[in-house]
């Protein structure tokens, strides 16, 4: 298992060795100076603990033909420096790529100041912004390479600690496409990010034991959103359960609800952070468990959906 940060940094260094335009903008994240900074000193800058300035500086670099990757925590990227991201990066459609660590509850015991449960909602609402939520180290490495080739800005949502791989070896990251990790016909579990995808896979196992065939989709691109896979799931399975390490407002659950409401209505349950701040101290796993972002909760939601399923005979034709 590789920590998200290490997977990202290794991928970035590899790309930078091939492409002179790639820069690394640091905000005192630790470790980048000795890594990227030592390898590519002319393309590394530590702007200090000043995230708003860093975003605009990166915009200036991008306007000069550079491809900057900016490094900060998700909280600071999406809200503290949010206006700089909106105006200087997104509005100008400049290729600045935001690598945001400590997303979701991965900040764990550091508390709500360092947790980020609204970043997808913010970034998804910005025109021109690509939003990527990789689910394992292999996907991170591929996502970084895709980001570097984008004409506009992107947001890479990273956790903090290593998690098991969820994709088979050799699986490809395709921007804008959900990966079908398990086939199924009764219900679809839609997840994004490492823990939620693991929860969906665990739920799949539990459901199999109950004789339920659950499809599992890993939606690693929140924007552009894979409308087709969601519509297919709506038509081909009896309902959808979303699971995310993010507020139930504005993230994956909302994106799926928007697609269903406009294109293919289906029953939906959203598993995610309830509309509240995290009031507990603990490991990310403890917090996920506390707020019900677990395989068990996903399986229960799926079974509820199926139990509530209107009888085919009662639906007027």
């Amino acid at each position: 298992m590789t920590a998200p940060r290490d997977a990202y940094r290794a991928a970035l260094a590899e790309l930078a060795a091939r492409d002179e335009r790639i820069w690394c903008c640091d905000s005192d994240m630790g470790g980048l100076e000795d890594g990227f900074g030592r390898q590519f000193p002319r393309r590394y800058v530590d702007l200090g603990i000043a995230e708003a300035n860093m975003m605009s500086v990166a915009a200036g670099l991008a306007a000069s033909g550079k491809i900057p990757f900016v490094n900060t925590m998700a909280s600071f990227a999406c809200l503290r420096a949010g206006e700089q991201v909106k105006i200087d990066i997104a509005y100008n459609a400049l290729p600045v790529h935001i690598a945001a660590s400590h997303a979701g509850l991965s900040g764990g015991h550091f508390g709500p100041t360092h947790q980020s449960l609204e970043d997808i909602a913010v970034m998804r609402a910005l025109p021109n912004m690509t939003v990527i939520v990789p689910s394992d180290a292999a996907m991170i490495a591929q996502a970084v390479a895709v980001q570097a080739g984008l004409p506009g800005p992107s947001y890479l949502r990273l956790g903090r600690k290593a998690t098991p791989d969820v994709h088979p070896p050799g699986a490809r990251f395709v921007l804008g496409r959900a990966a079908r990790l398990r086939a199924g016909t009764d219900v679809t579990l839609v997840a994004c990010g490492p823990h939620p995808v693991l929860a969906a896979l665990a739920a799949h196992e539990q459901l199999v034991a109950s004789g339920v065939s659950a499809r599992v989709l890993d939606v690693s691109t929140l924007k552009p959103f894979d409308v087709e896979s969601i519509v297919d799931a709506s038509i081909e399975t009896g309902g959808l359960v979303t699971v995310e390490e993010h507020s139930v407002i504005g993230g994956l659950g909302s994106a799926v609800a928007e697609v269903l409401a406009e294109h293919a209505p289906a029953r939906l349950r959203r598993i995610g952070m309830p509309d509240r701040f995290c009031a507990q101290v603990g490991t990310p796993e403890h917090l996920l468990d506390t707020y019900g972002i677990t395989g068990k909760a996903v399986a229960e939601a799926a079974l509820e959906l199926l139990a509530d399923r209107p009888s085919e005979e009662l639906i007027p034709s």
Binding site: N53, S64, E83
Partner: peptide, 17 residues
Amino acid sequence: GSLGHGLSLGVGLALAA
């Protein structure tokens, strides 16, 4: 137009140069 952005943008342009 949103105040407080221009000098940072200028730092980016000047740094690239």
